Amino acid sequence: MSRQYRNRSIAGRTVAVTGGARGIGRAIAAELSARGAAVVIGDIDSETASDTASALGLAGAFRLDVTDPASFAAFLDRTRDTVGPLDVLINNAGVMPLGLFTSEPDEITRRILDVNVYGVMLGTKIVLPHMLARGRGHCVNIASLAGENPTPGMATYCASKQAVLNFTDSMRREYRGRGVHFSAVLPTFTRTEMIAGTRAPFGLLAEPEDVARAIADLIARPRRRVTVTRSAGWLAAANKLTPRPIGEFMTRRLGIDHIFLEDVDQTARRTYDERLRRTR
């Protein structure tokens, strides 16, 4: 599929991106807007979202708490008022605290599940009747390769992303033939504030722009799942076919058992962790 065709198939689409103020969400908004889509972003940090929308020339930016049904419904209503009926909802908002599970405060465990799982389900539940009524639409859910690769130091996060994968597949089968597509995107470690203070293994680091391009191509040609990067996806697939003791030995050799535990630079993560506490 040529780039010219991909761009033409996205031009004129109306898209909402949750968690769009920074990181992967910002990169998605920039890529889709550059390809001619009318993009509205939502974020709990409304000030940064407005700054992002102004800098990128987006159609709009509104405050959004993905864990609050009233907030999500209002965001989607305002999006429709701004750009018209929604063609694509990208459930991107997510949080990734790190550390030992037994040291994780209950409110952090709940926050991860509320944002990463309930937020995806809630947005889908609100937008889906409108898409079904039109007979077309696309829900793109940002999962993670962590959802298929259990990782010490991020147990709750891994569980949340596995839930997103299964939810997305369930929706795809439940509404097959109704004109609405459901896709999951599985990025590897991506260079955003989420991985601040950590060291990604060689070959397992993506840029936000890599994820954004993959999503744009996915919207142009809907598929069930896409991994970013491809090489990280191949490694993850190969690991599934490897006997478990050997696979776990290799991940230990790569240092993955330590990356999100004792190897974390807590000072470098302070800004991210403090913002997460402020927005609970």
Rank of each mutant, 00 (worst) to 15 (best):
S103E: 13
R22I: 07
A268Y: 12
G147M: 09
L98F: 15
T48D: 10
L113E: 02
R221E: 15
Q4T: 14
Q162W: 08
T79L: 08
A143S: 14
R110Y: 12
P222N: 02
A184P: 15
T188F: 00
R78F: 03
L89W: 11
V17P: 06
V88M: 02
R213Q: 13
G137Y: 07
K240P: 03
F101C: 12
L254I: 01
A61P: 15
T52N: 09
T67A: 10
P129E: 00
G84H: 00
M194C: 11
P85N: 01
N239W: 04
F260M: 11
Y175Q: 04
V228E: 05
T156S: 13
G177M: 07
F182R: 05
T267Q: 14
A232D: 03
A30Q: 13
E107H: 08
V15D: 09
S33K: 12
V117N: 02
G25S: 08
G36I: 09
V228H: 06
A238G: 08
T242F: 12
A196N: 13
T242A: 13
M131Q: 13
I112A: 03
A236H: 05
E148H: 10
R178L: 04
R111D: 13
V140L: 10
D51T: 13
G57I: 06
K161Y: 09
I256G: 00
A133T: 10
E209R: 03
R22E: 12
A196Q: 08
T190H: 01
G23A: 11
